[in-house]
Structure formats: C-alpha cells, structure tokens
Design a protein around this nucleic acid. Structure first.
Lengths: 230, 230
DNA sequence: GCAAATTAATGATTTATTCAAG
DNA sequence: CTTGAATAAATCATTAATTTGC
C-alpha cells in the first residue's frame, strides 16, 4: 500500500492566493458552499495551484469551526459573567461548564461578519418546502459564477432509483463524492519541492473581487434578515 | 403549506440561562415534571426569555432520552474495552443481557471486538480512479445536483433488490467504496510533486473571476430557478 | 547554519447532534 | 419511534514553524 512512497503529499496545501480568495469568500458570507459552488470555487482556485473540491469543502468546514470556536470562547466568558449574575436571582446553580448553546437573541455586536451563533440559530433556512419541493437552497444560489467547466453533461438521474441505492450515506460524504468527480483539472505542477512553498513572491496585484455572496444560512451575521422560514 | 408567517422562529430556542437551569434541574433529579412543576419552571424560565410549558415538557423528555442514549453508548464502549482485554483469556462472549442495547447493524462489531482501529489506515491517498459514476438521491436534488459531470454512467439499479442488498453497506463502508471508485482524476502519483505549486502559472495580474451580480443567475439557467426565498 | 526534536496550525476523518419526514 | 439528511464537534494526522544542540 505504499502510495508511491514518494511523498505524494497527502494533503492539500493552499497557495497564498488560494487562501486569500477563500478567506475573502468567507468574509463575504460564504459558509457552507454546496456542491455546485464548490465546483466553481475549485475551478477558479485551480488556477493558482492544485486543488480539489474536497479541499474547498474542508476548508470552509474547518474555517467556520475554528472561527466559531474562537468566538465561542470569547462569548462564553461574557455569558458566564452574565449568568453568574443572573443565577443569583434564581436557582442557586453551581454553574457548571455549560457551554453548549448560544442563542441569545440579543445577538452579537460582533465585528466579524460570521458565525452568528453556534447551535442557536437552529431555524434552518431550509427552503421550508414553500410551494412545492424546492431543490435549491435559494440562499446558496445567490452567488454563482460562470465558470468554464471541463465538460458539461448534465446527468439525468432517476431520483427514485437513486434514492434507493443511496442507502445511508452522509450528505457530506456524498457531496464529496460528487465533488471529487469534478474536482480540479489536471494541473501539472512538476515540482518536486517538499510541499507548499510557504513563501512565494508576494504577488502584487490581486485585487479583491466583489463577491455578491449572500449565503444566508445559520451562519453569517452581517446582514441577516430574519430567516423567512417560508 | 408554508406554516411560516411566524416572524419569530416557530420553535423554542432556549437561552443559555434557561438551558443551564434546566440542566441543573435535571441533574438534581427531575425527570418528568408534572403539570404543576412545569408551570412553575416555566414561570421561572420565562424571566430569561420566551418559553412555554410545552417547551419545558419536551425538553425533559428529550433530554432524558438523550442521556439514556449517551449512557448506553458509553457502557457499550466500556464493555468493548473490557472484552478486548479479556478476550485474550477467554473468548468474547456477547453478554446477552446487553444485546438489546444495540440495535444498529454497527453493533455487531462491538460484540465481537476485533481491535479494529478505525483510524488506522486513514491515509488512503488519492486513488487514480477514473470511472465516472454518479447518482443522486431525490433529496439531494435540492442542492441542485445537476452538475456537470465529466462522464455520465448512470448506474441502473433495481431499486428493490439493491435496497435489500444495501443492508450491510451502511455509512462509511459504502462511502469509501464509492469514493474509491470515483476519486480524483488521472493524476499519476509518480513523483508528481503533489503539493502546492511552487510553480503556479504566471499569474500576473491575478484576474479574479467575475463574480458579480451580472451572472447571478447562472445556476438558475443550468439548473433550476431558486425560489426567491430572500 | 543546519538538522533532529518539539510545538503550533490546519487539512482530513470520524462521530455525535439536530431537525424533519415517514 | 425510526430513519435520513445535514451539520457541527471532536479527533486524527501531517505539514510548517520553532526551538535546540552541534
């Protein structure tokens, strides 16, 4: 099973450009891109280096989690203080380490445009079946770039059959599978250097782009309109 | 449809304080409060935010269930460990009186511990899969799964048979299989210095992709019109 | 200066939780 | 109550930083 022994780099290493773009996207509100978005992002980022859909997927997952974690600690302290004060009014609670939920409606005067709350905003904006069986999380579709994918062959699937076949597969994994199919185009970077040139030329111009992303999900707090919950 | 209309979330969202108190109560022994107790609790908790009696009722019900579940799992694991140790002396006897604790197909391995370090051979480097291969579950279509796939080979399956067959290929196993089949493109894992391009394309002015309001409807076009949930 | 040893980041997986539908 | 879909949390594992001894 020695996978080519030669360090096939088991792990993706984002180039500065890729990272920059991803962060900008995140900053713009993107949190959990769907497969379609991932494909496009991947496609674009592949210009700057080897990358696969799952990398993008993971990046957002991890980044979101990290940010949330960071934030949670800060808020946690604040909350604890508040609660310490309040608990005196009611039950003499020993105040353990409850740090599960954050949902204070008072919301966050946060500086960062993200992570409104961890578990709180449970109100999943699942397009709540308004009208009739939607298929796209509308919110997600807001930002969509026109990318030139290698080939375009819309697969027609028999939903019914498929459904049966799928058995149980976690959504994420499934998505990844799909994403893998599309992943990044062959990117010949014939370079044997260890991995990830950490410091490469600062690449000058990189102007930031206007991503009109409105990925409104439980995440994102910048301009969260009350989830229609349609 | 569209129960919506509810400007506020249709669902109770416990504030941290409420949650803390509830948990403390649970900890002190309360399990199934009667109407009177519920009323009282609700009254108290309402100080920290909107809440109704039924919320309290449901909370205790759910929490109780959850705790049981948790405990059940822990016991299972402990047993597993103990048995792993003991099985060297004796042989793994699946304590019959615990069988009812396991109801999922995944349970069997527990009873017959085989020291399967799940995380052992994680690093399954990219296999140069190739075969296209995709199927979509009806549910997934909500994410607009009409993505452009390199090759389309819709696997025709006999729903009925397959379904039955699936029985054991739950979750991870199934996924892994699929992923293996699909995975990433050709990618010769020779010495193709995988990681990070220290060598990315000229990249001069970094022309960022045109993500703008202009093409906000691409997806619509290719897939389906996202309901203006927003 | 460099390379083994340690530590810090962070990419990749797995597990648990949550919500909704049947 | 059960099951499926989706997500977040927890965890693992590898890479890059860094420290340290030479």
């Amino acid at each position: 099973m020695s996978p080519a022994s030669s360090s096939s780099s088991s792990r993706w290493c984002p180039t500065p450009e890729q990272l920059m773009i991803l962060e900008e996207m995140y900053r713009s509100g993107i949190r959990t891109p769907n497969a379609s978005q991932i494909q496009q992002i991947t496609s674009h980022l592949s210009f700057y280096g080897k990358i696969e859909g799952k990398n993008v997927f993971y990046w957002f997952q991890n980044h979101k989690a990290r940010e949330r974690q960071k934030l949670r600690r800060k808020l946690g302290k604040q909350l604890q203080l508040q609660q310490q004060q309040q608990q005196q009014l009611y039950y003499p609670l020993p105040l353990p380490h409850l740090l599960h939920y954050f949902d204070s409606p008072a919301a966050s005067p946060l500086l960062f445009p993200q992570i409104s709350s961890s578990n709180s905003a449970k109100s999943l904006p699942l397009q709540g079946g308004g009208g009739g069986h939607e298929e796209a999380s509308a919110q997600m579709m807001k930002y969509t770039w026109k990318v030139e994918m290698p080939s375009e062959s819309v697969v027609e699937v028999e939903t019914d059959n498929k459904k049966a076949l799928m058995g149980k597969m976690y959504g994420r994994d499934w998505m990844m599978m799909m994403v893998d199919l599309v992943s990044s185009p062959p990117h010949n970077n014939n370079n044997s250097s260890p991995c990830c040139a950490a410091h490469r030329p600062p690449l000058k111009t990189l102007e930031l782009f206007p991503i009109t992303a409105t990925n409104l999900k439980e995440d994102n707090a910048t301009t969260t309109p009350p989830p229609p919950t349609n």
